[in-house]
Design a protein around this nucleic acid. Structure first.
Lengths: 335, 335
DNA sequence: CTGTTAGCGCTTTCAC
DNA sequence: GTGAAAGCGCTAACAG
């Protein structure tokens, strides 16, 4: 079943059918519209997306690009799963098809953007500077998320990572902790982690607390390796609390602490970031900084579509707030 | 940059360039091949997927269809996240693009299959019988997973749910448990859950243990509702162990039990299914039936591609084994 | 209000 | 070994 066949059985031209399908009804008489729509219904006609994108030089595809090492199962990371899942829901809701790609190679990015004539692109994570050289990025509407670098003319939706860090520092200081540690998600040049750390430092500074360099861990390696963690905790100046750049790392940390027979929070306190379902499964339940991922996905997709519909809009920038969710992984040292 | 432009700058016809791009080199002279490949390299040419699928009447897209209620974030379910993530990796590895769709409506399915001229389709979950009427399903190569119903001529990759249930029953009986309960994933007509339950019953039957009807819970509702769970556990004949149809439900159960101050495993034992990362985060770590999701995804994609390449292959059917991973959520009652 | 027509970028016979 | 040409299914001017 093709559009042409619909046109033939309706006794009209393909142009008219095309207009009906695409909702350009101002140029078609009411009964023609109805006749054609009936035929479409009965025949179960489905427009061919390839033909559509060829003719329009733009598809209904939106590239969702997640920075990750090649062949990694990105959905094993609960944040990525939650976020991409939410983006997917929003995109379908608006009639777009997500093309989910995880890569570290800018050539994959251009292949997707050009090969599929995408309507737009959503990026998550910090990409190499190579990205700055992709000309398509200034052509196709783009929203960057979970990163701080920007390409001129692109849009950005972020989370207020700095104030998240501040809230964590403030809270832990209030609870009487004086020796703190920070654990990042990964050793890459993640500026999200850097901002969380920076905020943490600022939050602590208000209480005249300084983070010992040894306790700023650029990767969760110590968390995965019980021996390293033990060494760290047996130092006389060992931290009494950890601020983790994600719930995922925090959950791993708690697991390892349990394994080493440290009690959380009695011996060691832990604060996470994201407030994913994971945060309720740890023992004890995790105190963490919450972000609203559904709302983020919603804003991202809305912003993208706005720029798809109107190509000359000025670049936008939105920062979403975070808040502390207090559970039971932090001890109060004030008594 | 289009294929035609490549042809012009190389001084050859589009047919020749097309042959080079698609690796049909038997008809092209060595130096022509090299010349064209160089131009392609330098120009950063990317073939247009839409044009390709139009001309070939088949795209490089594989539909990945997950049965789910509309607008649900399917990746919040850790099994789905893990599985779809693994499928995605495998598909990209073979040059295919996953079109991930979660739906409950067969019309979405036909729209995807027809609209995108997909090369193949992978289904996960139990679909309504409507599916049987989709003619495309007998046309496009298809692999069904995580379900037991089949459409004639289609392929199937499954997990040995029955023996998983048997292993669970056998293990719990061996550990001295005599009053058991089963919790399914959801109330839908999930035959995966049914097979796990059936196997569980068989495993217990070998020890002359019968499952009380009241303790066969068709949804995790009791798990999410502390009051319901408490009522159940305060019965004089309360179960001493729960077999959950998934780690996700098991993790929720453990959380609620902890919340109600029941100790796992001292008061209540729990067994899960899937062996996801979640199973290591619970307190205590979860004893569960493991399936190899990466291997499953690998087999599924291999099978699909085999049938894409050769359309007249006979339907295939593969069953993957499961095994028990013993952690600390089950008490030994034998002393 | 409706039809004609010329592509979109690529593949694929079929000649040469 | 290479090229010419006819489409794939749809859209978008432009006529009428």
């Amino acid at each position: 079943m093709t559009l042409k066949e619909i046109a033939r059985t309706a006794g009209v031209s393909t142009a008219t059918v095309s207009n009906v399908i695409n909702g350009n009804l101002h140029h078609v008489s009411a009964d023609t519209v109805e006749r054609i729509q009936n035929i479409i219904q009965e025949s179960g006609y489905v427009p061919n997306q390839a033909a559509r994108s060829l003719a329009q030089r733009e598809s209904k595809v939106v590239a969702v690009i997640i920075q990750a090492i090649p062949n990694e199962n990105i959905f094993r990371n609960p944040y990525t799963a939650e976020y991409v899942g939410a983006l997917t829901v929003e995109l379908y809701r608006h009639g777009y098809f997500p093309l989910i790609r995880s890569t570290d190679d800018y050539r994959d990015v251009v292949a997707d953007l050009r090969g599929w004539n995408v309507a737009g692109a959503i990026f998550s994570g910090t990409f190499p500077r190579h990205l700055k050289n992709i000309k398509s990025l200034t052509t196709v509407p783009t929203v960057f998320t979970d990163c701080y670098f920007r390409i001129p003319g692109t849009n950005h939706v972020g989370v207020d990572d700095v104030s998240g860090g501040q809230l964590a520092g403030d809270y832990l200081a209030q609870m009487g902790h004086k020796r703190l540690a920070f654990i990042a998600n990964s050793i890459d040049e993640s500026d999200v982690d850097q901002h969380r750390l920076q905020g943490f430092r600022e939050g602590l500074a208000a209480y005249d607390i300084t983070l010992t360099d040894d306790f700023v861990l650029p990767t969760p390696a110590n968390v995965y390796n019980p021996d390293l963690l033990k060494n760290l905790l047996q130092r006389p100046d060992a931290p009494t609390a950890f601020f983790c750049a994600s719930d995922r790392v925090a959950a791993q940390l708690i697991q390892t602490l349990n394994h080493l027979n440290y009690r959380v929070p009695d011996d060691i306190s832990v604060v996470g970031f994201d407030n994913l379902p994971t945060a309720e499964l740890t023992h004890p339940p995790l105190t963490t900084l919450a972000q609203d991922i559904d709302q983020k996905a919603h804003l991202v997709v809305d912003m993208l579509i706005r720029h798809i519909k109107q190509k000359d809009l000025a670049p936008e920038r939105t920062l979403l707030g975070v808040w502390l969710v207090e559970r039971q992984s932090v001890a109060d040292l004030n008594n």
